[in-house]
């Protein structure tokens, strides 16, 4: 069968959906939505390259005449942002790796494990609730326990909490990807004598690499940007970039320039990663919602 006809990639259907209200309306929607995103992004970058008098100018200056890197110098040298950058990276990376390894194992056991169907459904439901419930609910008890264990202001505490948020996310995504694997594939492996662990690593894992990548990026971006627990559990040593950004809103006034520079430094690395792996990222987002 011709696969092309099954998907609406043919230009006729593309036109039907795209031009649902006529070509001019479509062009307007596309242009307006791109400007709506690109202008704030431009404004962020432009302000990170401005002097204090320029970013507080009234009326605002739309285009930078002189470009200055003094905001970047300030946050890199005076504030030593490198420390927070390292913290953010370590917390995001370690919690992502743990969540992807343990989460995909749990997801596989939930989807295809040799456990009674009822019990597997129970686990599936529990993971789902974990994903939905508000983080703020456990903030206070977690703070009290961490304080008792003297873990406040350590990266360890942040890694633990981010892993806790990322596990349900990874499980939820990977369950969707595992469900798509045809049962026959595993059945033939069973006949060949492969046990549960071998099937997972040799057969299931290789074919779900896109899913693994997708959930890894989503988990990484989530942990990289996480703010609530980062601000509660860190004082100084374990601060992450989002905490620094929020810290520029002070009683003494708002330091837009350094704030914008920090925000650019926070955004740039993950933006590059996500753009490089855009296909997986988009697939992950779609899977997270449409999962069967």
């Amino acid at each position: 069968m011709n696969r092309k006809r099954k998907t609406p990639s043919s230009s006729a259907t593309e036109r039907v959906i795209g031009d649902f209200a006529g070509r001019p309306v479509r062009v307007i929607i596309v242009v307006v939505s791109l400007i709506a995103i690109l202008f704030p992004l431009y404004w962020l970058i432009a302000n990170s390259l401005r002097t204090k008098t320029d970013y507080l100018a009234n009326p605002p200056i739309l285009f930078n005449a002189p470009v200055t890197i003094q905001n970047y110098q300030k946050i890199l040298i005076e504030n030593g942002i490198f420390k927070e950058f390292t913290n953010t990276f370590i917390v995001a990376a370690v919690s992502t790796v743990i969540a992807v390894v343990f989460g995909s194992m749990a997801a596989y056991a939930t989807v295809r494990g040799r456990i009674a169907k009822k019990i597997r459904n129970f686990f599936g439901l529990w993971f789902m609730i974990q994903k939905m419930y508000p983080a703020i609910a456990t903030a206070i008890p977690v703070y009290l326990v961490m304080r008792h264990l003297r873990l406040i202001d350590t990266r360890f505490a942040l890694i633990i909490m981010n892993t806790s948020f990322n596990l349900p996310l990874v499980i939820w995504l990977m369950m969707g990807f595992f469900e798509q694997i045809p049962l026959e594939m595993e059945e033939s492996a069973i006949i060949d004598g492969a046990n549960f662990v071998q099937r997972f690593f040799r057969i299931v894992f290789p074919v779900t690499t896109p899913g693994i990548i997708a959930s890894a990026i989503l988990a990484f971006v989530g942990a990289w940007n996480e703010f609530l627990f980062a601000v509660i559990l860190s004082v100084n040593r374990s601060k992450t970039l989002p905490v620094v950004i929020a810290g520029f809103i002070t009683d003494r006034g708002l330091e837009w320039g350094p704030m914008a520079a920090t925000a650019v430094i926070t955004l740039l690395p993950i933006l590059i990663v996500v753009w490089a792996l855009q296909k997986n990222f988009v697939q992950g987002l779609a899977m997270g919602a449409v999962k069967g």
Partner: peptide, 30 residues
């Protein structure tokens, strides 16, 4: 275009809040 659309999803929500606070400022906001 999709690459551009991904930006608000990837930007730290804290940064989004402060960026818009700057842009919506009553005196100096763009």
């Amino acid at each position: 275009g999709t690459s551009v659309l991904l930006v608000p999803m990837i930007m730290a929500p804290v940064a989004i809040g402060t960026l818009w606070r700057m842009m919506l400022d009553g005196n100096t906001g763009v």
